[in-house]
Amino acid sequence: MKEFTPADASLLELVDRLLHKGVVLAGEATISVAGVDLIYLGLNVVLAAVETLERAERRAS
């Protein structure tokens, strides 16, 4: 398993807030992103960010 870095933690906290916190009003619709249910999106965003960081590290080395 990939090591969980402070940058991952920060991103995970932000994504968690965007998807699970904030004002919820009755009668609203919650939709998916590019066909992915929002509940799963957070993890995908973090994984994508980790991959981006890894690519950047490989380019730098």
Partner: peptide, 17 residues
């Protein structure tokens, strides 16, 4: 902040919510 993914069908829908 509103939760991401919140959509309204119209201005009237937003005001009704």
């Amino acid at each position: 902040p509103m939760r991401f993914g919140t959509v309204f069908a119209s201005d009237e829908g937003a005001r009704a919510a």
